[in-house]
């Protein structure tokens, strides 16, 4: 039996093993409870729901044509929505964005009271008291925010509060991409 152990062989075995361990570690730390949206790069689902502030007015996906939209799923029963709401005043000041609300599984009077006391940053508000539109969008908790391109396709979905940091990091790059035609 030869006494010499090929050093290359030994190193490669260690490297392969280390690589595998790294992969396992990476898989562990990569687990996220955030569900990926099924709508990414797909058109928004078909719908026809009334405007919260005017029940005679119907909204359809045509709402998202022409402008880049942020669709914010909110409700008066959702504690984090109160934290998030002031930020929407900031985003609503931008001319290049259309801020649309989706009032999710709320009572009308409570929703109106929420807007009265917290302010109304939305250009339009989809009134989804049954929560069925939310399910079409794959909503599983409020607040959620969808970035929708002027072609009516969903580009991104964020679950949780859209803080200015989140906006800067996640939304801004995609918004400039959309503007460049991607």
């Amino acid at each position: 039996m030869s006494d010499k152990v090929n050093p290359l062989k030994g190193i490669s075995v260690v490297l392969v093993f280390a690589g595998f361990m790294w992969f396992l570690w990476w898989s562990l730390s990569n687990t996220s409870s955030e569900l990926p949206s099924q709508l990414i790069d797909r058109p928004v689902p078909q719908f026809s729901v009334s405007e919260l502030l005017d029940e005679n007015k119907q909204h359809t996906p045509d709402l998202f044509k022409e402008k880049i939209s942020l669709l914010n799923v909110f409700a008066s029963w959702c504690p984090a929505c109160y934290d998030e709401h002031p930020y929407w005043d900031i985003y609503a000041q931008r001319d290049d964005l259309q801020i649309v609300g989706l009032n999710y599984k709320d009572k009308k009077d409570k929703a109106l009271y929420f807007l009265e006391t917290q302010g109304n940053p939305y250009e339009h508000i989809l009134f989804d008291s049954s929560g069925r539109l939310g399910i079409e969008f794959g909503v599983y908790g409020a607040p959620e925010t969808f970035l929708i391109g002027p072609n009516g396709k969903v580009r991104y979905r964020h679950v949780g509060v859209v803080t200015p940091a989140v906006f800067e990091e996640k939304f801004e790059p995609l918004i400039s991409q959309i503007k460049q035609g991607f």
């Binding site: 569900l35 990926p36 099924q38 399910i135 079409e136 969008f137 794959g138 599983y140």
Partner: peptide, 8 residues
């Protein structure tokens, strides 16, 4: 269900 919430 899968169309809206994925394989998950």
């Amino acid at each position: 269900m899968k169309q809206r919430y994925g394989e998950f």
